[in-house]
Design a protein around this nucleic acid. Structure first.
Length: 258
DNA sequence: CCGGATGTTCACCT
DNA sequence: GAGGTGAACATCCG
């Protein structure tokens, strides 16, 4: 479940790559290549210049190409033997050698590795950043209004929040936490939000991602502790509803989320 | 031992 | 074109 928060922690670790040179590329699992495998050769001899992020996409710029990394549900970044995330929900704690999908050997002896048990993670060369909506951590009110309302008919609010081409970075857990804090029902049609509710939601999208980052992961929200069968709303003690919205498991409080 | 659950993306259908 | 559904992925839990 690497969502925006986990990818930002990975980006911060990746900053240590700036100024360093790639010696060789190891495509351990061709399945992980979202781009033609031959194109990864352009990284050999390249020097990293920046570590950026848009939504759940990590972007590592070099002087010749940009390496894109997407972690799927269980992917983890390891640089110079240091994992970006000490623990990851739904992913085994101890890394197995057979889960190494992609690696760069650096000329200084260091390494960049993508470990992923489930093989849902992908690496790419010069990924299409424009296919993603504005980043959730810095989304403006006007951007959120467009993301939720434009070309929408009756789709559920939560389904819209999860659409990466509309708003980038929000995954299932962050979506539930944000909606819980904003007191909005995940099942509400996105188009039914008024200005006041949009403003409330925008504030919560930004403050919740920032709060989860400080706490160290998208699993660290207040709702998460109660996100189980029989769980009670941490705000008012009302039994949480478990339903499926936008094809995803959803926990929410019918008492205060309307 | 085995069915179901888990989150993300994408192909496919209505 | 909007929106819903299910597959792929591998592992863990009951």
């Amino acid at each position: 479940m690497p969502e925006l928060v986990e990818v930002e922690l990975s980006r911060r670790l990746a900053e240590r790559l700036v100024g360093r040179q790639v010696a060789s590329v190891q495509l351990h699992d061709l399945h992980a290549c979202a781009t033609d495998p031959g194109r990864f050769a352009s990284l050999e001899g390249a020097t990293f210049s920046a570590a950026r992020r848009r939504g759940k996409l990590l972007l590592l710029d070099t002087d010749s190409a940009t390496l894109g990394m997407h972690f799927g549900m269980t992917g983890r970044l390891v640089i110079d033997g240091r994992p970006a995330l000490e623990r990851l929900l739904y992913s085994p704690a101890v890394l197995q050698p057979r889960w190494l999908r992609f690696a760069l050997a650096m000329t200084d002896g260091g390494a960049v590795e993508l470990h992923d048990p489930r093989r849902l993670g992908r690496v790419s060369i010069d990924p299409d950043e424009a296919a993603l909506g504005p980043d959730a951590a810095s989304v403006t009110l006007a951007e959120l209004r467009t993301a939720l309302l434009e070309r929408s008919r009756g789709i559920a609010l939560k389904a819209r929040l999860l659409d990466q081409s509309r708003l980038a970075g929000v995954g299932n857990l962050i979506a539930d936490e944000v909606l819980w804090r904003a007191a909005l029902s995940p099942e509400r049609p996105a188009v039914s939000l008024d200005d006041d509710e949009l403003r409330r939601l925008q504030r919560q999208v930004r403050s919740t991602t920032s709060m989860l980052l400080k706490r160290g992961g998208s699993h660290a929200g207040d709702l998460m502790a109660a996100r189980m069968p029989g769980g009670l709303c941490p705000k008012d003690g009302y039994p949480l509803t478990r339903s499926v919205v936008g094809g995803r498991t959803t926990f929410w409080c019918r008492a205060h989320q309307t």
